[in-house]
Amino acid sequence: MISETTGLPDMTTRYTRTAMTLHWLMALLILVVFPLGLYMHDLKLSPLKLELYSYHKWTGISLLLLAAFRILWRSAHTPPPLPATLPHWQQLASGAVHALLYLLLLTIPMTGWLMSSARGITTVWFGLLPLPDLIGRDKALGQLLGAVHENLNYALLLLVLVHTGAALKHRYIDKDQLLSRMLPGRK
């Protein structure tokens, strides 16, 4: 997009407030739920472990809802176009990474929910709202879903590193305004 005032590529066209809120809220929750998943897994059975598993599930289900809402919302709201100065391959790569991130933010919590169902432990959101058990008790399937959940998470970790790395490269190496698109503040 060309700025009307400067006639130069306008990199500061921002995402909307809704997009930014969803982005940073989900980033924050992922930053909580991911290390929590790794940490709780290795604890020996204790009340703390049971609590952390629940907090992990509650946060994860919250992320699932946010992801579903975000994808719906996004389908009705086109994000501001990337600056035309951005190389074509980078535009494609950025689109692919974003699409995969959305996909993982649906499939990771879904596999978590399915795993809990297969293990015979109903997910009760915030200890208040019991979610339906999507599948019956099945030890082997629970095991498998656990492995899928874990591996999808490593894919998520990789993508988040690429995503964050790219944003920081624009900020500190290219020294352009790309990151500002997702940051609140003055124009």
């Binding site: 598993y53 432990i121 109903t122 019991p130």
Partner: peptide
């Protein structure tokens, strides 16, 4: 009940 979840 464990963390609000019915267990058997």
């Amino acid at each position: 009940r464990q963390m609000g979840v019915s267990m058997e």
